[in-house]
């Protein structure tokens, strides 16, 4: 039997394409580990909580409630959204929470695994994958909740609703890709996580999460360029069965995300030893 030979030296002697190949191999090879880590986190999270699964969607629901109340009481006036406002706000905040959670996922998974990445050599791609599994788990709960709302508010079933989970999966991919690029530096400086959190809370107001794109003005221009707009609106249109205006843009985002995801993954892979060196406890 030929033994596998590993060589450790200063240069990344391997070519980038080879790194990419190894990275993809490890990503798919670490399915069991990733699943195990995801189950561990989900279980331990809910075992130590009374409200359990409610925490998965309580934040988007409460933030939607704030907007619904502001609108109902006439504190702010929101232009007609085409569908009942509560469901518009709920869908917006739910999808938004999925995207933001995806952006935070790679760095929080890696951060939580500090204890093992500095001690044990295992495919680090498993951490990213376990983050994606956890996102799928949480997103499924949110999607079910949203579908219930869709029927309660009388929007009813459209065939395009079946494509909605797929669109959500693309949102998760998009968010994870952005998160993955931030992770190496984010693990070294925790300023990055704070900047991202702050940036996202601003970004929400230039994205049609709880209100529609204005008819004219600078805000309209910004919103139309903003890729988050395409994601939110396409998801929402698919769910409600309304016309999808941003489908082309959405499709481009998907293609670019796929390509960038693997580049980000490779970047992540070669960065881990440097991060371990700076973190080692």
């Amino acid at each position: 039997m030929q033994l596998e030979t590993k060589i450790y030296q200063k240069e990344n002697s391997l070519k980038l394409t080879k790194q990419l190949k190894e990275s993809i191999k490890d990503l798919f090879g670490s399915h069991f580990l990733a699943k195990q880590l995801a189950i561990r986190d989900v279980r331990s999270q809910y075992r130590q909580s009374y409200l359990g699964i409610i925490w998965a969607f309580i934040t988007p629901v409460t933030s939607a409630l704030v907007w619904i109340i502001l609108n109902l009481t006439g504190t702010i006036r929101i232009s007609d959204t085409g569908v009942p406002y509560p469901i518009y706000a709920f869908s917006g905040t739910l999808i938004w929470s999925i995207i933001t959670e995806s952006i935070n996922s790679p760095s929080s998974s890696t951060n939580a695994a500090r204890g093992i990445i500095t001690k044990i050599n295992f495919p680090k791609e498993a951490l990213v994958l376990s983050g994606i599994y956890k996102l799928f788990f949480n997103s499924t709960i949110k999607i079910v909740l949203l579908v219930i709302f869709i029927f309660i508010f009388g929007i009813g079933f459209h065939w395009s609703l079946l494509l909605f989970p797929l669109a959500i999966a693309i949102c998760v991919l998009f968010g994870t890709t952005i998160g993955l690029f931030m992770t190496p530096i984010g693990l070294i400086y925790n300023d990055i996580a704070k900047i991202i959190r702050m940036g996202l809370s601003f970004l929400m107001y230039v994205t049609p999460v709880v209100y529609i794109i204005p008819k004219e003005g600078i805000m309209k221009a910004i919103m139309e360029i903003n890729p988050f707009t395409a994601l939110i609106l396409t998801c929402r249109d698919l769910a409600f069965g309304t016309a999808t205006e941003y489908l082309g843009y959405f499709f481009w985002i998907f293609l670019i995300s796929v390509a960038l995801f693997f580049i980000a993954l490779m970047f992540y892979r070669i960065s881990i030893p440097i991060i371990v060196e700076r973190l080692s406890a």
Binding site: L3, T5, K6, I7, P273, V276
Partner: peptide, 30 residues
Amino acid sequence: GLINPDSGKITIKGNVGALIELGAGFNPIL
């Protein structure tokens, strides 16, 4: 293989097992 050297070279053949910290990654709740 957790960190890379700054110079020199290591060649290792076969599987590497490490008993560095036992029970790393144990979750206290489970």
